[in-house]
Design a protein around this nucleic acid. Structure first.
Lengths: 343, 343
DNA sequence: TTGAAAGCGCTAACAT
DNA sequence: ATGTTAGCGCTTTCAA
């Protein structure tokens, strides 16, 4: 007869059996008394006795065991392209807050590129996560196919799924661009140019379209559109230089795809001897920390990042709970933060 | 006779039994062939057949089951006081990178305050994490007692344990302060004052001591020490005002406990009509993003945050593996980043 | 080298 | 309302 495994050498954890013995009841009664949804089918006295015994012994239910039994790990995976990108921590915070309130944990993983993302999703699947939230940012992503096939519950945040097969939570880029464009036009800007982000990223693409649309709605045309290779300060600088060299008359407003690019634009404009905002207005996007510290302070768009994370988690849990009327997409309104960089 | 549970309603995952059947062997053989450390005690042909069957069927070992059996979840918990504080994402990134390389996942949780921290640790214990890394930042923390009692493997990062019972990874604040002080003195500063952080936080306390020590080592005395209520810009502004009002002669250098406080000092100095660095030099700590964008760009100390996270994970895994010679503390050298705020 | 079997701790269907 | 029991999927000891 096989002998008891020698494995659990840890501090012999208190199990449900210990509690049952201490309370003089059967383990199943303990399980019922301690059910997360409250005691069900257990008399009040017995439940109280069990709870006090559990407390006394320092019982902590073993989630690995319950996961094996129920198939639910109370764990959700969050996949980010880059944890250190300041855009993501607030989103993660919102997700974590919601998850913690539900008694779930968040597994975070950094992964960029189709191969790494897929590998990480496989690992998460093996880990039996209840669902995933993805902030990875590529359009027409084969990953979506993989997720749909695997039957994994998933919600996208900060990007939408072009094919509409996965739920998503995003900031309203159309509204954002409308706010920026209307603000600039109201301040008398005539030739609005756009420093667009990489067009293979949903935000880069979406904001460019939104910029064009916002101008069209006012019966105007873009005063120039130039594409940045990346969401970086260097790209902003280079692209602004190109734009200034190519365009005559030069734009009197630069609507940038994000704050870093806007700061790159500052550099190029300063080098060209142009004053912000006297000669040219500049706006950013994301309201990253310290955007109010540069000179002049940057007018920018503040997406509701924490709220987006919170809502993404909410959507995911609604799906896990099988709620039938859960929205497929949530588009949350950003805020325009007017500072000194627009006249 | 109880009937099979109706529970696993998901997409009937492929289990080890399916693989065994497909390969015509017993499940235990599959388990051996697919062991993470490589096939052990299985003939090469059989192992190959099993692996191909596993691949073909899309088998993914169920971590919940293996966790229940082995007691290892391949999961580590990371406890942060505030995910959105830019100090922590790089640390988390380092931890995650190391964990992922080992095939482990990271559970992140936000928790501030003794009660929340303890509750979260309890939840992590229930979740059967293999160990935890804590960046929560209080000195003489009762949490340390709790961890030691519970037998949980733990490593502190960005703070040390005064009692020395838990392993820790920190940036070398003594070296940091020596670098700053020597730099300022070399540039001709005479009266170095310190804007100290909250003294109940290890960094606030440690940096103040280190500042004093660094001056002592040069045979000098502090040109003033004022305490900030928090690591915030407002606190920096208020404290600088107090310091300027109280001190005569006024300091010609302000060594700040962190960058935000330094920016607050900028505000107060500007309000007082003092120029940085002509009238007074200012240094920060942490090199937060955009610290190079303020005017003048901030001289600051850059702790090796990502490396700290990486090392903390390394230490934790060494403990989990039972390595006997694992260090109890790691003090990593920061870098001085000289910019325009010191003359 | 492979098979057999027990059991990790918990939950839930069934019986009482 | 409570007890009995099987079994989630895996690992590992023991036997062959």
């Amino acid at each position: 007869m096989p002998r008891r495994s020698t494995l659990p050498p840890a501090t012999a954890a208190v199990t449900i059996r210990d509690v049952a013995r201490a309370a003089g009841v059967h383990v199943s009664t303990v399980s019922r008394a301690l059910a997360p949804a409250g005691p069900a089918g257990v008399s009040a006295e017995v439940a109280a006795a069990i709870k006090s015994a559990a407390l006394r012994l320092g019982y902590r239910p073993n989630r690995a065991a319950s996961a094996l039994r129920t198939g639910r790990t109370h764990t959700i995976g969050v996949l980010l392209p880059d944890i250190a990108n300041p855009l993501f921590p607030p989103i993660l915070q919102g997700i974590e807050a919601h998850a913690a309130a539900r008694g779930s944990f968040v597994l975070v993983a950094n992964a960029a590129g189709a191969v790494a993302v897929k590998a990480t999703l496989q690992r998460m699947l093996a880990q039996q996560v209840d669902g995933v939230i993805l902030a990875t940012a590529v359009r027409r992503d084969p990953m979506v196919d993989f997720i749909v096939e695997s039957g994994l519950n998933a919600v996208l945040v900060n990007r939408a799924d072009d094919s509409g097969r996965l739920a998503s939570v995003v900031s309203d880029d159309r509204l954002a661009m409308r706010l920026v464009v209307e603000h600039l036009v109201a301040r008398g800007c005539e030739r609005l140019a756009h420093l667009a982000g990489p067009q293979d990223l949903p935000t880069g693409h979406g904001r460019r379209l939104a910029f064009e649309q916002a101008l069209r709605d006012l019966g105007r045309r873009p005063g120039g559109i130039a594409h940045c290779k990346a969401y970086s300060r260097e790209a902003g600088r280079d692209t602004t230089q190109r734009l200034l060299a190519a365009r005559a008359p030069r734009p009197d407003a630069l609507v940038c795809c994000n704050d870093l690019v806007a700061l790159g634009a500052y550099d190029a404009l300063a080098a060209a001897g142009l004053r912000v905002p006297a000669d040219i207005s500049v706006s950013g996007h994301n309201d990253m920390q310290l955007a109010d510290l540069v000179h002049p302070a940057l007018t920018t768009v503040r997406p509701p990042l924490r709220e987006m994370g919170w809502r993404a988690a909410q959507l995911l849990f609604e799906r896990l709970d099988g709620l039938p009327l859960s929205p497929a997409a949530l588009v949350l309104p950003p805020e325009l933060v007017v500072r000194g960089s627009t006249r």
